[in-house]
Simulated assay, not measured.
Amino acid sequence: MLVSLFDQERSFTRGVDPMVLVSPSIDEEMRRKRVEEENRENNSVPLVEEEKCRLQTEILGVKCSLLRMERDIAVMRIERRVEMERTLKFIVQTYLLSLFD
């Protein structure tokens, strides 16, 4: 390779800047590809972890909403039961008062 460069240098005329094109060797290309793949793998790991965290956050948010809805339903049932008990108590009292009049 050096011999061909020397031959090219001799063939150029003075006053003209020579431009030498050197093609990368196969080892360099393989190394570049390996480095690019490693960079992609290293960059993808934080992205995967970030996606996992986002998914877990979304799941927890949905679970919280579901628990709030269940709590609201339970509170409504308790309120209905209390109201029913008051109504039944009033009916029994009214009935008992009507018996003694």
Rank of each mutant, 00 (worst) to 15 (best):
R14A: 15
L55R: 11
L55F: 11
M1R: 05
S98V: 02
L2K: 13
E85Q: 04
S11D: 14
A74W: 00
D101L: 04
L5V: 07
F100Y: 12
V62P: 00
T94G: 03
D101F: 00
D27M: 02
M1S: 09
L5S: 04
E41Y: 11
E49K: 06
K33D: 07
L88S: 02
V48M: 06
E51D: 10
L96C: 09
E79I: 01
R31Y: 07
Q56T: 08
E37G: 01
T94P: 00
L5D: 04
Q56N: 08
T94L: 13
V35L: 07
C53M: 15
Q8C: 04
M1C: 05
V82Q: 11
D17V: 04
V82C: 13
K89C: 07
E41H: 07
L96W: 06
R34P: 04
L47M: 06
R80Y: 02
M30W: 06
I26F: 11
R10M: 09
M84C: 10
L60I: 08
Y95W: 13
C53Q: 15
R86H: 04
V22D: 03
E37H: 05
Q56H: 08
D72R: 12
L55P: 01
E41G: 00
E38N: 12
E85R: 03
S4N: 15
K89P: 00
F12I: 13
F100V: 15
F100H: 12
N39P: 00
L97N: 15
V45G: 00
R10L: 05
V16T: 09
P18V: 10
M1I: 05
V22Q: 02
T94H: 05
R14N: 12
N42Q: 12
M84L: 12
V20W: 01
L21N: 07
L67W: 00
N43E: 13
R80F: 00
E9S: 09
E58A: 12
P18W: 03
L21V: 14
T87M: 14
D17Q: 15
L99N: 08
L2P: 00
S11T: 11
V45L: 14
L96S: 04
T13S: 08
L67I: 07
T94I: 05
R31T: 07
D72H: 08
L97C: 09
E28F: 01
T87G: 03
M19R: 15
M76G: 01
L47H: 07
L99I: 08
L96G: 04
R10T: 10
R10Q: 08
E29N: 06
E70Q: 14
E28G: 04
N39L: 14
E41V: 03
P24E: 00
R54K: 13
V92Y: 09
E58I: 01
S23Q: 14
L97H: 04
I91P: 00
I78R: 15
S4M: 09
E28H: 00
V45T: 07
V62H: 15
P18D: 03
S65M: 07
G61Q: 02
M69L: 11
M30T: 15
E83R: 07
R68W: 08
L97A: 14
L21E: 10
E58F: 03
V20R: 02
L5P: 02
L60T: 11
V48C: 04
C53P: 05
L47F: 02
C53T: 15
